[in-house]
Structures are given as C-alpha cells and as structure tokens.
C-alpha cells in the first residue's frame, strides 16, 4: 500500500457506503458455507464410521426351532464360525444383552420368557481380511434355523444416503460460492461506479491498470477476510452449540451411532480455510472485474 508519511493512501474510501452491507453479506455467506461444510464433514465422518463398523462385523441369527435345542444350535454355529478363515471372534449374546437390545421396542420385563426370541451371535472380522460370505452362509445352512446377516443391505442403504446428503452439501457449497462471486462482482462494479471519478483521475494522471486493481484487491481482501472471520466465529458458536445440545439429548452411552459434531481437529482446519478462500475469491474477483472495467476506459 502506498503511504504518505505514516498515513496510508487508499484510493477507495474505507467508509465506503457499500462497506457495512458488504461485510454483512460476506459474513452471512461465510457463515452458511462454514455450517454446510461442518455438516458435510460430520456426515462424511458418520457415514464412513457406520460403514466401517458394519463392514467389520456380521450377525448370525439362530431362530427358535423344534429340530434342535437352543444350546446345541448355538454350539454348532459357533463351531462353524470359530474355524472359519478371516473371522477374528464370534460371541453369542447373553440373554441380558438380547433383552437390552429389545428394551427400546418392548420395554422392560421378562420378554425373553414369553417370546421366541432368536439367539444372536456377533461375529467380528479380522482387520483387512475378507470373508467368503456365500460359502459361510452355505456352511451355516447345516445348522437348523441359522441365517447370516453380513449387513450388506444396511451398508448399501447408508452409503447411498450418505452419498446423496454429501452431494446436496457440496451443491449448496457450490451455490454459496457462486452467490459470493456474484455479490463481489456486483459490489466491485458498484464501487467502481461510485468511485468512477477517482478511478478516472488516477487513470488520467498516469496510474497503471494494475496499480488501480491492486487498490481494489486490497480493499476486497480485507473485506473478504473480515467478513469471513465473522462468519467463521458465528458458525463455530452454532456448531458447538448444536454439538452440546445433541450430546445432552442423546445422553451417555449413545455415542456408537450418534454423530460427533466438530469432533476432529481436521474439521476445524477445513473451516478455517473457508474465510481464507473467501478472501482469495474476493480478491481475485475484484481484480478481474476492475481490470475488465478499466480496460474499457480510453
């Protein structure tokens, strides 16, 4: 920036009429962009966490049957599972665990005594290994009432949902970026119209186009940064508030399937990039707009 003594020369008055309005618009755009990005990152984490959890485990369900006693049925299934390649561990759920799984739907009480509830076996797969589920399903066919659920159906549904939600999130981010670009182009042109006399005089005195463009770039760099930081701060407060409310509503012990908003420091880093990107977009857009407008002058 040019200086006169200690005073900086600003070709665009800092108290420009559009300044306050633009700050608000840029701050709101950044707020929305940070919120959307925060939601996209959280959703992405949740979806991959669910997918990882579901891919790393399977469930064997042993339906109650007259052909074999429950104990023999469980032993037969466990023998198949424990000797199967790729399986780390198989564990039959206790009656208490089965009761607690059903509790949200059936309530407390001796439901297992009154209902023919199937025995569940939780199967964990060795990390990085694949299990031939078709062959395992065929092998378990020898155990009456045994069925294998490899969570494929759930996994596909969750992945599809996550992909759709992420697509919507990125589309919203794209629209916000587009709207920000349009606002900056409009504001730069409006600024050039308001200060056209200044630009013309400086142009006539012999200033190069890049000199004038640099003055505008600087103005919009600070505007983009200030607006961006305000938007970031507001979005962090909102996201942390949402995380606190979510955690309180979900209660203790519910963390396995409930999202951890802003759980990763990487999320914060991505969000910090938003005001920087906003400032960069504002600067580049202003530069291109100014050069285009000045280029039309004699």
């Amino acid at each position: 920036m040019l200086t006169f003594g200690y005073r900086k020369l600003q070709l665009m008055p800092s108290e420009s009429a559009s300044g306050a309005t633009l700050h608000i618009i840029i701050a709101v755009m950044n707020f929305l962009a940070c919120l959307t990005l925060g939601a996209v990152l959280t959703l992405s984490d949740i979806a991959s966490g669910w997918s990882r959890g579901l891919s790393a485990s399977m469930t064997v369900q042993l339906a109650v049957t007259d052909q074999i006693s429950a104990e023999d049925q469980t032993d037969a299934a466990m023998r198949v599972l424990q000797s199967w390649p790729g399986i780390l561990r198989a564990r039959a759920l206790s009656r208490e665990e089965a009761a607690s799984l059903l509790e949200p739907w059936l309530g407390q009480g001796n439901v297992l005594q009154d209902l023919p509830v199937p025995q569940l076996i939780e199967v964990q797969i060795k990390s990085g290994e694949k299990v031939d589920t078709q062959a395992l399903r065929a092998a378990l066919g020898a155990v009456p009432g045994a069925t294998l659920d490899d969570h494929k159906h759930w996994n596909e549904e969750l992945s599809g949902f996550a992909r759709s939600a992420l697509g919507v999130g990125w589309a919203v981010l794209g629209l916000i970026t587009l709207a920000t670009l349009a606002v900056i182009v409009f504001a730069t042109q409006a600024g050039l119209n308001v200060h056209r006399d200044i630009v013309e005089v400086v142009h006539m005195i012999g200033a190069k186009d890049v000199f004038i463009a640099r003055e505008y770039e600087r103005h919009f760099l600070w505007l983009g940064l200030r607006g961006g930081l305000i938007g970031l701060m507001l979005s962090l407060v909102t996201l942390m508030g949402a995380a606190w409310i979510w955690d309180r509503a979900a209660g203790p012990g519910s963390s396995a399937f409930t999202p951890h908003i802003m759980a990763s420091p990487w999320h914060l880093l991505w969000l910090i990039l938003v005001p920087l990107a906003s400032a960069a977009i504002a600067t580049l857009t202003a530069r291109m707009t100014v050069l285009r407008v000045i280029g039309r002058m004699p």
């Binding site: 006169f4 600003q10 200044i198 400086v202 005195i205």
Partner: peptide
C-alpha cells in the same frame, strides 16, 4: 479526490510515479 488531503492530492502524480 475528496477523501485525500490537499497535500495528498497534490503529491498524487509523484506517488503514482
């Protein structure tokens, strides 16, 4: 240029150079 002082207005061509 209204937001610049008299000195700054007069010195502008030298600054631009």
């Amino acid at each position: 240029i209204e937001h610049l002082t008299v000195y700054e207005n007069v010195a502008l061509p030298r600054k631009i150079a």
